[in-house]
């Protein structure tokens, strides 16, 4: 649990950071809160020769409202998300989800960017971002791209982020006032990745689901958007038969790995249970 040798860099501008990442290419890794990369380095599963610390980049921090969107700097910590009035008012599901990420110590250091950028399927925020239909701003030496979250995740630890690019902003459209939301996460203990988790954002009209989106955590190589399941519940009052169908539709797209959290069969089953429970709870808080 001792990392190999590396050079430490602490750029103060985005341009410098991008340049360092470009210059060193595959030998460099950006460092956000350090809660994914540092453990990997201690196990020597990651052995970057250059560590580009993003802590000094003030431009990557903060939460603000821009028209009908919330813009979050990727270096914003989970703790800052939890403390933000903007988040708890406009994106309460993020508040709820951040509370079930690891423990307070980790949340003081761990950032939302670190959680979403590297494509770790165990992390909670990617499924939230999918459910909320976020857009990531990626800055490279030559161009700045806005990439939809739904195009970002390509496989476990594979994303649309090109070598030499840094994520600089996360833009989330604000869901309608009175929307229902829930993040149901089953985990073995505090600090663990989800055995299965489901995020739901929905709106209700006359007791029936008007719009719905469902995201799934740690049930495949990437976070998933359960589109069929979401489609199935629209226009219904979430009766038991519909919930059952929605769970089954969600389970159909899951392909979790068997691990200490349980065999595949179990993880899919509880994935379905989380979907049904999140739908019900989201509907109960919608107005």
């Amino acid at each position: 649990m001792i990392p190999g040798p590396f050079e430490y860099h602490r750029p103060t501008t985005i341009a410098d950071a991008v340049k360092l990442l470009c210059d060193f290419g595959d030998d460099a890794r950006p460092l956000a809160g350090g809660h994914s990369l540092i453990p990997m380095m201690k196990l020597r599963l990651a052995t970057p020769s250059h560590l580009i610390d993003l802590q000094a980049l003030e431009a990557l921090k903060g939460i603000r409202r821009e028209a009908e969107s919330i813009v979050i700097g990727p270096m914003t910590t989970q703790h800052e998300l939890l403390s933000s009035q903007i988040i708890s008012k406009s994106l309460p599901i993020l508040h709820e989800a951040a509370l079930v990420i690891a423990d307070p110590q980790v949340r003081y250091r761990g950032t939302i960017g670190g959680n979403i950028a590297n494509g770790d399927p165990g992390n909670d925020m990617p499924a939230l971002m999918m459910t909320l239909d976020a857009t990531y701003r990626l800055v490279g030496t030559d161009e700045t791209r806005e990439v939809s979250v739904r195009d970002y995740y390509q496989g476990a630890y594979f994303t649309a982020l090109e070598p030499g690019e840094i994520m600089t902003a996360i833009t989330i459209p604000v869901p309608p006032v009175g929307h229902g939301y829930a993040y149901e996460k089953l985990k073995r203990k505090i600090g663990d990745y989800a055995t299965a988790a489901a995020a739901v954002i929905l709106t209700m009209s006359d007791g029936k689901v008007a719009t719905c989106s469902i995201g799934l955590t740690n049930l495949s190589e990437t976070a998933l958007l359960a589109e069929d399941a979401a489609q199935l519940v629209i226009g219904t009052a979430l009766d038991d038969a519909t919930l059952k169908k929605a769970s089954a539709a969600a389970e159909a797209i899951m392909s979790p790995a068997a691990d200490g959290r349980g065999p595949v069969e179990y993880r899919k089953h509880v994935g379905g249970v989380m979907v049904a429970r999140a739908l019900k709870r989201a509907a109960s808080v919608a107005v």
């Binding site: 055995t195 349980g262 179990y266 509880v270």
Partner: peptide, 8 residues
């Protein structure tokens, strides 16, 4: 008696 074994 962890969760998955109880379910099993």
């Amino acid at each position: 008696h962890d969760f998955w074994r109880n379910w099993q």
